[in-house]
């Protein structure tokens, strides 16, 4: 399956949803990443995706898109670029330690249980200097016992 089909399939989009892009670049002028010196261009992302260009793998949005939907808000067709960026991440990038811990918490408890996340990510947090920040930023830390919720089998696919 070509890359674009895989990504569109994950995002739940069809090719036609992207063909409507007018190329107006409103998305590129509005993207918040440009304000902090990261050259982000959602329009190029869409074009590289449609054309199946190798540049897609190096697109700064893959790493830095915050998913704020400002591009969608101002797009004449309201194309949801962040949805496609997330799908492209899943298809192209190895999963991040945070995503792994997140998924694993969902598998175990059906919810995100923060003490478990902290435990799983301790080496990562230590290496990246998060611990000091979390002491300042977390308003409270609830050490309740985790609850295993009935999930009707929706997490089973995670175990495949």
């Amino acid at each position: 399956m070509p890359l674009i089909d895989e990504i569109l399939d994950l995002a739940g989009y069809r090719r036609e949803d992207l063909y409507v892009c007018l190329g107006c670049k409103i998305c590129s002028s509005i993207c918040v990443l440009n304000e902090i010196g990261i050259e982000a261009n959602p329009r190029n992302f869409i074009i590289n995706l449609i054309m199946e260009k190798e540049e897609l793998r190096r697109d700064p949005l893959l790493k830095y898109c915050t998913g704020c939907y400002a591009c969608t808000f101002f797009c004449p067709w309201e194309i949801k670029v962040p949805d496609m960026v997330r799908a492209a991440r899943a298809a192209l990038l190895p999963s991040h330690p945070f995503e792994q811990a997140f998924s694993s918490s969902l598998e175990l408890f059906g919810r995100v249980y923060e003490p478990y996340l902290l435990f799983r990510l301790l080496p990562y947090f230590f290496r990246k200097g998060y611990l000091r920040l979390l002491v300042k930023g977390l308003p409270s830390f609830r050490l309740s016992l985790p609850k295993r919720v009935k999930t009707e089998g929706i997490f089973d696919r995670e175990k495949k």
Partner: peptide
Amino acid sequence: PDWNCCGAFEFGEKERILALSQA
């Protein structure tokens, strides 16, 4: 009762995100 996580923005797969919230 027994609500589960909505998946936030951590999954690229739309179907999975929808399944979590549909539950």
